[in-house]
């Protein structure tokens, strides 16, 4: 039976289309600004189309050199960080998904507590510094090695998997480790795509740890570097004024350059997303089957 296109379907398509398009307007705006002349931007003329089209901002970003260096550092961090996150999440979520795990209430409490309280920045810094991790990429990765929130999402996903599959493995004499690696892991793909994306976005967007753990700005990851460009005018005035005026001027006219950098900064994640999205829809059944 072939469904007819009713008025409802047409309405649905148009309505959802409008809502969806409003979601990308800020991006379009950013893009338009990045390709416009600074005079047009500061006069507020630019909305969704570039005015006085120019690629000067992008040329500036590329010529600086620092942008790409920072991006390389970010990429390294995202890869290492996400891998570590995934390994620890899987290793933790799988046993926790077993209802009669020995001491399970203790373990869940252990993780819930830490989701709710944190010791704050100073003791964490002293710890990282004391462990000699400062100025290494590990200072950005190890403190958040196990994202508890995402681990719980993963745990609920595992609980939702058909029980029979695991049981079959046990009957064949597989140990928990073997079961995890051979049976469970392949089934986790969609869930890992989801929590992996969360990890990636988290690592990619975090700017604060870069600025406190890296001694040399040349070793900043991308978002930390971008943050330094976002310093507002008043802040700049505060830092110094005499002799700095040219700098302030160039700063104010760098709004378009800033837009270009922000756009380039968000782009990699946006490019990765459509590939992972496939997995989201192939059956991310978090919690939809009772444990």
């Amino acid at each position: 039976m072939k469904p007819k296109h009713s008025a409802f379907d047409v309405f649905l398509t148009i309505f959802l289309g409008i809502v969806s398009i409003t979601c990308v307007l800020p991006f379009v705006h950013l893009l338009a600004v990045s390709f416009s002349s600074s005079a047009a931007v500061s006069a507020g003329k630019v909305t969704f189309l570039p005015i006085d089209f120019t690629t000067a901002s992008y040329e500036y970003v590329v010529s600086g050199g620092r942008f790409f260096r920072a991006m390389a550092i970010s990429v390294e961090r995202v890869i290492l960080g996400t891998l570590l996150n995934l390994v620890l999440m899987i290793l933790t979520a799988y046993p926790l998904s077993k209802d009669n795990l020995m001491g399970r209430p203790f373990f869940t409490t252990y993780y819930v507590i830490i989701m709710l309280v944190s010791g704050g920045m100073i003791p964490t810094y002293l710890l990282v510094s004391g462990l000699g991790l400062k100025d290494t990429i590990w200072a950005l990765i190890l403190p958040g090695a196990l994202p508890v929130f995402n681990m719980i999402i993963l745990m609920n996903f595992i609980r939702g998997l058909p029980y029979e599959i695991e049981e079959a493995a046990w009957i064949d004499g597989a140990s928990p480790f073997q079961t995890l690696v051979r049976v469970i892991f392949p089934l986790l793909k969609p869930a890992l795509a989801t929590v992996g994306l969360f990890s990636m976005v988290g690592h990619w967007n975090d700017w604060f740890s870069g600025s406190i753990y890296m001694s040399n700005p040349l070793n900043y990851p991308l978002q930390t570097y971008l943050q330094t460009l976002l310093v507002d005018f008043e802040h700049l005035l505060q830092s110094d004024k005499s002799g700095d005026i040219q700098a302030i001027l160039s700063k104010m006219n760098a709004r378009t350059g800033r837009a270009a950098q922000l756009f380039l900064g968000a782009l990699p994640i946006m490019l990765v997303y459509p590939f992972l999205q496939k997995y989201f829809t192939t059956g991310l059944t978090i919690g939809s089957v009772k444990g």
């Binding site: 920045m121 810094y125 510094s129 600025s211 406190i212 040399n216 700005p217 900043y220």
Partner: peptide
């Protein structure tokens, strides 16, 4: 020689003081 350069100067300084470094 620079021990560090940071865009979060006062935060980083507080941390360094706490660290006695």
């Amino acid at each position: 020689q620079n021990k560090w350069i940071s865009n979060e100067y006062s935060t980083k300084l507080n941390l360094s003081i706490a660290d006695r470094d």
